[in-house]
């Protein structure tokens, strides 16, 4: 069963086509990652799924229903821009978000306490929101999104601005939602997170769908055209940073310091490249692999991706 279905959906803002003929199906109980450069249409798509924005064309079905109403107690939504009432305490704020989603007053306390403990925020329950750090406020906002146990959770950039510890806490919470049967859709600029967490990855670029599938399916489209190599040529065991771009068949070199990643033309014999490398120094590591999501992203988005990854 599909949790979300989009069929030929388009959305214009003035003369700008934000989303162009988008068709997408999000299976229930999965984690679906939305990636794409800034301004590519991720947030617009999420807002249309939420029905905060209505599409100009196409159909959207959410949890099996087609409706023009945004408000749905079975959907939890964390927008990109966080919004909390500064003068309310954390507990009051969460109670309000729970009650507006239909959770009965008497059931709120247990749920809120459980989530606060899980997100390491118990000591902040009675503090005003304005006293929280950005990371803590983000976690409070996340709790507000999931406090009513929604079947579908939509998170717009949930990990942005979080330190590694808080990002880990949030990641565990998202995986916990999946374990409990919820469908999770989130947008991210962090390709590593998308690779590791998402069952399916969808990439939108200039309003159009350019990738959609599992990581393996997506990587399969690009073949094994990445060679990860480490050379030792200095005689003292240190890595060589020789320029390898002139080796026949090498299209692009990405230098990571300890490693170099070579992208080779389709049909290039990897053994020929290995021979060329051996001629230049001692090969300590040679690995034939598929391109990373980051690499695929950059190949598609090009210059736009530079802006996105630095955003």
């Amino acid at each position: 069963m599909q949790a979300v279905e989009l069929e030929s959906v388009s959305k214009m803002f003035g003369t700008h086509r934000a989303v162009d003929d988008l068709t997408l199906a999000v299976p229930s109980g999965t984690i679906y990652g939305f990636i794409g450069p800034n301004g590519s249409g991720k947030t617009t798509t999420l807002r249309m799924i939420m029905r905060i924005l209505l599409p100009d064309n196409g159909r959207i079905r959410v949890l099996g229903a087609e409706s023009s109403q945004a408000a749905n107690d079975q959907i939890g939504y964390l927008p990109e821009e966080r919004g909390l009432y500064k003068k309310m305490t954390v507990r009051e704020m969460l109670r309000f978000y729970a009650e507006i989603k239909g959770v009965h007053h008497r059931d709120c306390r247990v749920e809120i306490d459980g989530w606060l403990e899980r997100m390491l925020l118990t000591d902040w329950a009675n503090k005003k929101v304005e006293a929280l750090s950005k990371g803590m406020a983000q976690k409070v906002q996340f709790i507000g999104t999931v406090i009513a146990k929604p079947k579908l959770v939509i998170l717009d950039e949930p990990f942005s601005g979080l330190d590694p510890v808080n990002a880990e806490v949030l990641k565990d919470a998202v995986l916990g939602l999946k374990r409990d049967g919820a469908t999770v859709i989130f947008s991210t600029h962090d390709m590593d997170v998308a690779e590791k967490m998402c069952d399916f990855i969808f990439m939108i670029f200039k309003g159009k769908k350019v990738l959609d599938g599992t990581l393996e399916e997506i990587q399969g489209q690009y073949g094994t055209d990445i060679l990860r190599v480490r050379l030792e040529s200095n005689g003292d065991g240190t890595e060589s940073m020789l320029d390898l771009s002139d080796i026949a068949g090498v299209e692009r070199v990405n230098n990571f310091g300890r490693f170099q990643e070579l992208r080779v033309r389709r049909g290039t014999d990897s053994q020929a490249v290995l021979a060329a490398l051996t001629a230049r120094g001692r090969v300590r590591h040679f690995e034939v692999s598929s391109p990373s999501l980051q690499d695929i992203f950059i190949r598609i988005a090009g210059a736009d991706a530079v802006e996105a990854t630095h955003a």
Binding site: M50, I52, Q69, A70, A71, D73, I75, G76, Y77, L78, P79, E81, R82, G83, L84, Y85, K86, Y97, I100, K101, Q141, G144
Partner: peptide, 19 residues
């Protein structure tokens, strides 16, 4: 405040604009 603090978008996930 709700508009500028982007609280409105959170609320609109739970209630219609008219509500």
């Amino acid at each position: 405040e709700e508009k500028m603090g982007r609280i409105a978008e959170v609320l609109l996930g739970s209630a219609t604009p008219v509500q």
